[in-house]
Design a protein around this nucleic acid. Structure first.
Lengths: 360, 360
DNA sequence: GCCTAGAATGAGACCGGACTCACACGGGTT
DNA sequence: AACCCGTGTGAGTCCGGTCTCATTCTAGGC
């Protein structure tokens, strides 16, 4: 631990400019009354000494760090990196820097993260909470007076702004589309575990994308008078179970899925890889639909039908909300729901388009 | 700008525990001599008051912030988000948080970024410098005594650690592969502009991926006695010119390219989209090769031949190097070159596999 | 029984800015 | 000439920790 060369301080500048520290600080900070004479001397001195204010010291007694914290599940996931980009661009335009924390979708890490950010005195934070998290740690942030904005999730009993993409209606549409093509055996694969097998009940877990989607799908099935194939809904994939195994099971069971829905692009890629490995053709053998629109989705053979959500815009909206709160807005929490849409391409086809089922 | 509720300080804890501020600080900080009696009283008081140290204040007089800065070109680019993940995981394991800065590949932004980080007193930084940047701003960081590690780029005259992926040899191999299949008209598309049309000369710009790749390709062509098709090397694509136009020009010119190489995955996706739009088939009409291995590359039809570099590991290596420097290591700068490899799939085929050229 | 090393403790300096307070100075009032 | 106000200025405090220094207390050595 070697010491770092000392930085120039206001005191150094003041000395060179032959004025008091207070005057130098005023000239530099652009506040109070300073004569032109002194101001130019100070500015010149600052220039020659390459003075840069110590933001830490500044933050110490302003109480504001011009930094926000962003807590996400996995930066590697394109969803988060794109949302992060939206957050970043917006915060930066507002003069805020970003401290990033990756939770790996782990609650303990998230709780810790929130405290770290608080200790670093961020001016606010945007959190994409772990799906089955409670909100006590976030409540503490709220009590501390620092604004929080939730991304991709609403939490009950937590009076803070949130930004989510509309999922229930678009999922309904997607399921309708599948049903229209004759698919009644639809598999849904998500790596998130909403907690307990009872995703059926409308748990008071707040709004999270996965339960919303299942709710939308359920409605479509109910309307169509078709039983929801609960046995084909697989949560926690890639954690407890390998995605390959899950896909394999869905496709080869006694009453196999004729369509598979992937909950996000990361899952989708693994599903696609497994299907290819198993020689299962899309859409001949199974139809396929994924959540999240990515550049490669439309370039695959066949082009993939997706549910597109405005990810970048979610980031932007979250950051705007946060910046407004930091600016002092104390109005009622706002809950934004950005529109999503179904993009029909060619990975969904009428059930039974192929005569011969794929060999497992 | 409303005030934030005051946090509890050591003074508060000390008061409750009925000891001096100094004793409370010692008990809390675990240094100096403290009696068991006092220690437990202080710890209990801290517990009931929910004391959390103000990291800003702590950093102020330790001079260390337990934070590193990471400066990248574009977080949305999978290359950076994966490298960032490697950096993040490693830093976190070492107890460091990460401040992220996105430059948008703009030099002015990068210079600014570096100063912001210095002002925030990061303990060190990892920078993926803009390709044609000079290094004066980074030299300043070095002078300040804060360690810097370069990612994906080496800079001459800048005595700092760097981590890059091996590019010259693997590019040579890739070009050899193309030549072996009969391709002499090979187009190379990169969004980066190395500066000036004269990528031919071995500019003293330090090592950057693009010049290294071209150097490797050049060597393969020279060895084969085939003139390097300089007219097909297009840098700055997507900035000055649209990628669609570039691809179109490469494919429809009087002496068109029979193979196209995409410099990274972002470019690749645009190239693929354009080719599809134009009805150009891979590999029948043109062969295709891209840098960076991504999950979707092997799932395309046909699976794409790629140059894979160990991106996550680059991030890990950079962070390890940085942490070591922060730890006080003053040894000679280290320059790591991580191995890359060519993954042959099916997007590269013998030239002229299709009888009829694609209609533009 | 006396002396001393070391533990235990409190007061206060310090990091580097932001900001308050007291005061000096000059011009305009009346 | 006495008074007031506003600008310009320096001394000094504060933010919340870390850490030095001087002092007190205690136990062990001879």
């Amino acid at each position: 631990m070697e010491s770092v060369s000392r930085y120039t301080t206001v005191a150094d500048v003041a000395r060179l400019a032959q004025v008091s520290k207070a005057q130098a600080a005023r000239a530099l900070g652009g506040y109070g009354a300073v004569s032109d004479e002194v101001r130019s001397r100070v500015l010149a001195a600052a220039e020659t000494l390459q003075y840069h204010p110590n933001e830490l010291a500044r933050s110490m007694n302003t109480g504001r760090s011009k930094t926000i914290g962003v807590v996400v599940g996995d930066i590697e996931n394109p969803y988060f990196s794109l949302a992060l980009r939206g957050i970043y661009d917006t915060s930066k335009a507002g003069g805020f820097d970003v401290i990033l924390i990756n939770t790996g979708e782990d609650l303990a890490t998230e709780i810790d993260a929130v405290h770290v950010l608080l200790d670093k005195r961020v001016d606010g934070m945007i959190v994409a909470p772990v799906t089955r998290s409670s909100s006590t740690h976030l409540n503490r942030v709220v009590e501390s007076g620092r604004p929080v904005v939730l991304l991709d999730r609403k939490l009950p009993n937590l009076p803070v702004d949130s930004v989510v993409a509309e999922m229930r209606q678009v999922s309904y549409e997607a399921a309708r589309h599948l049903l229209d093509e004759g698919h009644t055996r639809v598999g849904y694969i998500s790596s998130l575990d909403v907690g307990g097998a009872d995703f059926a009940a409308d748990l008071d877990l707040g709004t999270n994308p996965v339960t919303e989607r299942i709710a939308g799908i359920r409605r479509a099935f109910e309307e169509a008078g078709v039983p929801l194939p609960a046995d084909l809904i697989r949560l926690g994939a890639g954690r407890q179970y390998s995605i390959g195994d899950v896909v394999h099971a869905l496709v080869t069971g006694p009453d196999p899925a004729t369509a598979i829905v992937a909950s996000d692009s990361v899952i989708a890629l693994e599903v696609l890889a497994e299907l290819q490995r198993a020689g299962v053709r899309i859409p001949d053998d199974v139809s396929f639909l994924m959540f999240d629109e990515l550049p490669w989705a439309g370039l695959m053979t066949p082009p993939i039908t997706v549910v597109a959500q405005p990810v970048y815009d979610q980031g932007v909206a979250a950051a705007k909300l946060l910046l407004r709160r930091i600016g002092g807005d104390r109005s009622e929490p706002e809950h934004l729901t950005l529109p999503s849409r179904l993009i029909r391409r060619e990975s969904v086809a009428p059930v039974g388009s192929a005569e011969v089922p794929a060999s497992a």
